[in-house]
């Protein structure tokens, strides 16, 4: 490994990533789906689509609507269900040249336990992201994510059944993000992923119909980036575990901003739809940013807001 590779390498709960640029759940398929669009070996890792116990077809269309500096989506956790995932998809993930984080989403503690048990049996997967914050499904998800007691209790149970790294993906729509993060950490989470999309809606004023088939959806894109920066900054002061920053990154500078705010790694979502070269450009930018500003590695800039 050359110095450049050392410089960008990061570690989250003992798991090594070549660089801190990851693709967020729901925007990278299962990794192989995007192999004809970008070179995934250049990424730190990918987070898979959220896997649920049963297959999900997703919500009624339309499922997307563009808004100023962002987009609404109400996809609805489309996925083949855990059993087909394990049988048909996992074999295709084994040889992918990047770290694979599996995202799971349940409607109850028992569902999360089933999912985490099954994913824990996959030897090459080192981290599981718990989707506690999807705004687009009726039950589960976001309801877990808003209550510190349920988050603590869920993490505690999952901690007992797996040695894999557990990342708790939280919603920005809570009163006190630090409290929630501490509950996850106390329960046994290894990292916190912040933020999921913000609940949002758009209406056609002439037909008075909602723009989305599911009526409301989640807002992503540059519009939510400053929200993510604030949430990462706030929570990084009080939570003793690494934070994975997510939210509206669409320029390489946005990634660096989240790292300075307190993130140990950054996930890119809808931002790379506008430029599939963005993840690779970000890795290059980060490398030159560190050199030009006299930093030896990424760890030196994490959580270094100059107040």
């Amino acid at each position: 490994m050359d110095n450049s590779a050392d410089k960008l390498r990061i570690e989250i709960a003992g798991q090594v990533f070549d660089n801190p640029v990851l693709l967020a759940s729901g925007t990278a398929g299962f990794g192989y789906d995007i192999a004809d669009v970008l070179d995934i070996s250049r990424l730190g890792g990918i987070v898979t689509k959220t896997i649920t116990p049963e297959p999900r077809d997703g919500n009624a269309s339309p499922r997307i609507w563009e808004t100023p500096s962002g987009m609404l989506n109400s996809i609805g956790l489309v996925n083949p269900g855990i059993d087909i995932f394990i049988k048909d998809i996992v074999p295709l993930l084994a040889d992918l040249p990047t770290e694979i984080v599996v995202s799971v989403g349940g409607n109850s503690e028992n569902e999360f336990i089933e999912l985490v048990e099954k994913v824990s049996a996959i030897d090459f997967v080192n981290a599981i992201e718990l989707n506690l914050s999807c705004p687009n499904v009726k039950e589960g998800g976001i309801h877990f994510g808003r209550n510190p007691d349920t988050v603590f209790s869920l993490l505690k149970k999952l901690r007992e059944i797996t040695k894999k790294s557990l990342w708790a993906k939280l919603s920005p729509q809570v009163t006190e993000i630090t409290e929630l993060g501490i509950s996850a950490s106390d329960g046994g989470a290894d990292a916190i992923s912040l933020i999921n999309t913000l609940p949002a809606m758009a209406i056609d004023i002439y037909t008075r119909k909602p723009r989305l088939g599911a009526i409301t959806g989640g807002l992503s894109g540059p519009a939510i980036h400053p929200v993510a920066v604030a949430m990462v900054y706030e929570s990084s002061k009080g939570i003793g575990i690494p934070i994975i920053g997510i939210g509206g990154c669409y320029r390489p500078e946005d990634f660096v901003e989240l790292i300075i705010a307190g993130a140990s790694a950054v996930q890119i979502g809808s931002g790379y739809f506008a430029d599939t070269n963005l993840p690779q450009r970000t890795v290059s930018f980060l490398d030159s940013y560190l050199i030009e500003n006299g930093f030896a590695n990424v760890a030196e800039i994490i959580g270094t807001v100059n107040i």
Binding site: T27, S61, R63
Partner: peptide, 21 residues
């Protein structure tokens, strides 16, 4: 259709057909 990604990962342009989405 309106599309976000155009390359199959976002599921934003899915339609229901006689063979599923």
């Amino acid at each position: 259709s309106r599309m976000a990604c155009g390359f199959g990962v976002c599921n934003g342009c899915a339609i229901e057909t006689t063979q599923g989405f």
